[in-house]
């Protein structure tokens, strides 16, 4: 809690602090500072101050760290006004995202999945990553859209972010290789304020949506995305939005139990297959 207070004070005094809370789970300790201070100062003081701090928060499981060091708590930041939540993935230009976060006048919560630290950064080359064609939005916190068919056809859009991206990409590859079902994937980096232009554009092509996140299901990012997409693109959807997320529960330490709790490649494949089934 005091770390957040110190960082907030530095930001109010014109510095641009980067606060790293190793293990995003401990963000809970700073919530009073976040909700009643950091996010409110600018409006409370009529734009006379800004709080340009960056909080780097490693999130995510699959390393056997147990219930209090494995969560994906970014959904708790949903609905807090005047902050920005950015999640990087292995396919984003992570340096550019972090630079944009530091330059941002808003408080930015920068979500990093732990598994990212051990994986190479795979950036688009010649408009492709592997066999998938990729488009990148021009926003400072870019959204990446992947297509297995160079954007000519698609059965569903899967929207995801952060550490779920490689799992979703594996699922998309399996759907193509085993079933010739072609999906688009939108990897968001800006989660709050929610910016869904790339998702709506993709859903207009595919007519179906799956959301995939590593956090727990209830009240998650997927729920908010589903609500907004059905509102904006009801006539584009031919099937109910499917949500993929962790079960509503705590994360066990044992790796097999942890896997059983978390969203998987099979789960994503099944969700898309369910949409295909509903269509027939």
């Amino acid at each position: 809690m005091s770390l957040f207070g110190v960082a907030a004070g530095m930001a109010l005094r014109g510095r641009r602090p980067i606060l790293e809370i190793m293990f995003g789970d401990f963000m809970a300790l700073g919530f009073d500072q976040i909700v009643n201070g950091i996010s409110k100062f600018r409006e409370m003081y009529d734009d006379q101050v800004t709080v340009p701090l960056v909080v780097r928060a490693p999130m995510g499981a699959r390393r056997g760290y147990g219930p209090t060091h494995s969560q994906s708590l970014e959904k708790l930041l949903l609905g807090i006004p005047n902050i920005c939540v950015v999640a990087c993935s292995e396919c984003h230009d992570i340096g550019a995202l972090l630079t944009a976060a530091v330059e941002d006048e808003r408080p930015v919560f920068f979500i990093e999945n732990k598994l990212l630290y051990g994986r190479p950064n795979r950036r688009p080359e010649d408009g492709h990553i592997g066999e998938l064609a990729v488009r990148e939005s021009g926003d400072p916190y870019a959204a990446l859209t992947f297509s297995a068919t160079d954007f000519t056809e698609g059965s569903a859009t899967i929207v995801t972010y952060g550490g779920m991206l490689p799992i979703v990409l594996d699922a998309v590859t399996e759907l193509v290789l085993e079933h010739e079902i072609f999906c688009e994937v939108v990897a968001l980096s800006q989660l709050v304020p929610m910016e869904l232009a790339a998702v709506l554009e993709s859903v207009a092509r595919t007519g179906a949506l799956v959301t995939a996140e590593e956090g727990t299901l209830t009240g998650g990012l997927g729920a908010e995305i589903a609500a907004r997409v059905q509102e904006a693109a009801w006539s584009d959807l031919r099937a109910p939005v499917q949500r993929i997320a962790a079960r509503d529960g705590i994360i066990p330490s044992a790796r097999p139990l942890e896997d059983a709790m978390l969203p998987s490649v099979e789960g994503v494949v099944d969700a898309v297959m369910a949409i295909e089934g509903a269509q027939r």
Binding site: H128, G130, E131, L132, A133, A148, T149, D150, D170, T173, E174, V176, L177, E178, E180
Partner: peptide
Amino acid sequence: AGDRKATRKAVELAELHGVDLSGVEKRGF
């Protein structure tokens, strides 16, 4: 998974007709 780029249906069809997949000139799957 990353080493494979032909779908199961494509491989089966190619085997059935004895065609070599390297004849497909294409970026992607």
